[in-house]
Amino acid sequence: MRTHRYKVQKGGFGLFLGIAAEAIRLSALPADGTSVSNRVWLDASEVHNAYYGSRLTLTESEVASLQVGLGKVSGAIELVESSPCILIAVRALEIVEADYAEVALAPAIAGWAESEWSLAPRRCNAIRDSTTGQYTLDWDE
């Protein structure tokens, strides 16, 4: 299991999210999880708060953010991983409430996968609209 910490500090805002996950290589389709691509699957059903050890229940929107982030790197994972199926099981999140926004889930899990498979880093710029407080991600694609 590997932990990746996504951090952004800019004038006016900061984001922080740590994510611990493991890659489970399978010879057949997984029984649990959600398909992200042809061979990459996501399981976020057993996630804990890394600081308190309590169980976290992610919202559909949070799971969708994780899927977006994995989707950004799934093609690169499939190029370097020979297993027929790869299940990414998210095990824990490090959430600092003052610096947490759901939008950080996508680049955090993408960064985790880049570390896990030694992939070239993707640039992801977090932008916060100071008027509305809404975040957007620019994946530099």
Rank of each mutant, 00 (worst) to 15 (best):
Arg2Gly: 05
Pro121Thr: 03
Ser54Cys: 07
Ser115Phe: 00
Phe16Lys: 05
Ala101Asn: 13
Ala126Asp: 06
Thr59Ser: 15
Ile95His: 01
Ile19His: 04
Ile86Cys: 14
Thr132Ala: 10
Ala28Ser: 14
Leu137His: 06
Lys72Gly: 08
Val36Asn: 11
Glu60Pro: 09
Val68Thr: 13
His48Ala: 14
Asp43Gly: 07
Pro30Gln: 07
Ser82Ala: 14
Leu137Trp: 01
Leu119Val: 08
Leu137Ile: 02
Gln67Lys: 15
Tyr135Glu: 08
Val80Asn: 11
Asn38Ile: 00
Ser118Phe: 03
Ser27Pro: 02
Val36Gly: 13
Glu22Arg: 12
Val40Asn: 12
Ser35Glu: 14
Arg5Trp: 04
Glu22Ile: 05
Ser27Tyr: 03
Arg2Tyr: 05
Gly133Cys: 06
Ala23Glu: 07
Leu137Ser: 13
Ala89Asn: 12
Leu42Arg: 11
His4Ile: 03
Leu79Ala: 15
Ile88Lys: 05
Ile109Trp: 02
Arg91Ile: 02
Ile109Gln: 04
Arg91Thr: 11
Glu102Ile: 03
Phe13Cys: 06
Glu81Arg: 06
Gly53Cys: 08
Ser83Ala: 15
Leu70Thr: 06
Gln9Gly: 02
Ala21Pro: 02
Ala31Val: 09
Trp139Gly: 12
His48Ile: 09
Asp43Phe: 10
Ala44Arg: 10
Ala31Asn: 11
Arg2Ser: 12
Ser35Asp: 03
Val103His: 07
Ile127Glu: 12
Ala108Lys: 02
Asn49Trp: 03
Leu58Trp: 04
Ser83Tyr: 01
Arg122Tyr: 03
Tyr100Glu: 01
Ala21Cys: 04
Gly11His: 10
Met1Thr: 05
Ala120His: 09
Gly111Thr: 05
Trp139Leu: 07
Leu29Pro: 06
Leu26Phe: 03
Leu56Gly: 10
Ser61Thr: 11
Ser82Glu: 14
Cys85Ser: 12
Glu114Ile: 01
Gly75Ala: 13
Glu62Arg: 11
Arg39Ser: 13
Gly133Asn: 08
Ile95Gln: 09
Pro107Met: 04
Pro121Val: 04
Asp140Gly: 10
Asp32Thr: 14
Glu114Thr: 02
Tyr6Cys: 03
Leu70Phe: 08
Leu105His: 10
Ala64Trp: 01
Val80Ser: 14
Leu17Ser: 08
Tyr135Ser: 09
Ala101Ile: 00
